[in-house]
Design a protein around this nucleic acid. Structure first.
Lengths: 167, 167
DNA sequence: ATCGGTCAGTTCATTCACTGAACTAGACGA
DNA sequence: TCGTCTAGTTCAGTGAATGAACTGACCGAT
């Protein structure tokens, strides 16, 4: 987003957060990182984002310590992992209002297979489940893209543990 | 944001949500609506947003049933109120990483004065507190703008109940 | 009725960022 | 040495944001 750097209400952490993750594409990049994407090319083809923009966004996210760039791979840092509640809240809202057939993805506690509620709490053990212990499955509102030959997309649409690299 | 309308991954409610609230300024407008701002001019001066952009954003938010425009006032609809967890999650993340002196704002259960945790649960009664029952106070990280003569800003920086109109 | 002020928008020239396609550079393998 | 893959960079064209000025409706007071 790059709000005007002299933003009037410096006292709002929402504005501050939006300066980091409010730009176009940024949260989608972070989402893909949670789904296990780590390489430049996979982000590019998966998102259909112009490569120049992807370069800028990744650079910025690394600079802000949301992603780490090592061995040619981009991975979420602890600070990046802490964005998970934001993503979950947005998905919940999107599911509720723009997915008439139900959730597009459902979340589960990998340890005990309990279903997670919208706050990220496990129905079985009652605990708050960290992102790394979460499994994501296609939900009832999921509509499989007809004949999507892209192997990366195929992988992303199967049940997966968050933050695990693609096969 | 207006992601490319033929967005590759239609199966992601995050992308869908970002098409609504992912554009620049939009979440800041919603935040101000939670803080009680309802009039065009107050949004404009409070945010420092170009009036033409504000016109477009408000129009779009009304069209998407996030805000309602009646009697010259813009108010959150129930669908808009449901954005609150997203805002809270972003503020929490922003506070944690960009506010060294602590939270810029703290949230309380208006009914029993219990402090709300980052998930929006009341420390006193243990319940999930809806946005309308939440009071927001300046927190330890709050830095009062030196001599801000703007009466609207002054109001916004005092303890307030969410969604209550200004004065 | 008209004058001044406020409020809610619109208009418009400029600037800026995104887009999409082509290009470069380095690593790897045959 | 050649081809290929990956990770970027470059660049012209386009569309959106910016900021300032302008319009017009609606007051309340003279």
């Amino acid at each position: 987003m790059a709000l005007p750097s002299t933003y009037a209400d410096r006292n709002c952490s929402l504005a501050r957060a939006l300066e980091i993750v409010g730009e176009r594409w940024t949260l989608l990049i972070v989402r893909d990182a949670f789904l296990g994407i780590r390489r430049f090319g996979d982000f590019a083809t998966q998102l259909g984002i112009p490569r120049a923009v992807l370069t800028n966004r990744l650079k910025f996210l690394v600079q802000e310590d949301v992603l780490a760039h090592t061995d040619g791979e981009y991975r979420l840092t602890p600070k990046g992992v802490q964005l998970w509640p934001i993503l979950r809240a947005m998905m919940t809202w999107g599911d509720e209002h723009y997915s008439p057939n139900g959730e597009k993805r459902t979340f589960w506690h990998a340890a005990d297979n309990g279903r997670l509620d919208p706050e990220g709490r496990c129905a079985t053990c009652g605990g708050l489940v960290p992102a790394g212990d979460t499994r994501v499955d296609p939900g009832p509102g999921f509509e499989p893209g007809n004949a999507n030959p892209d192997p990366v997309s195929a992988l992303l649409n199967t049940p997966r543990r968050l933050m695990e690299p693609l096969a």
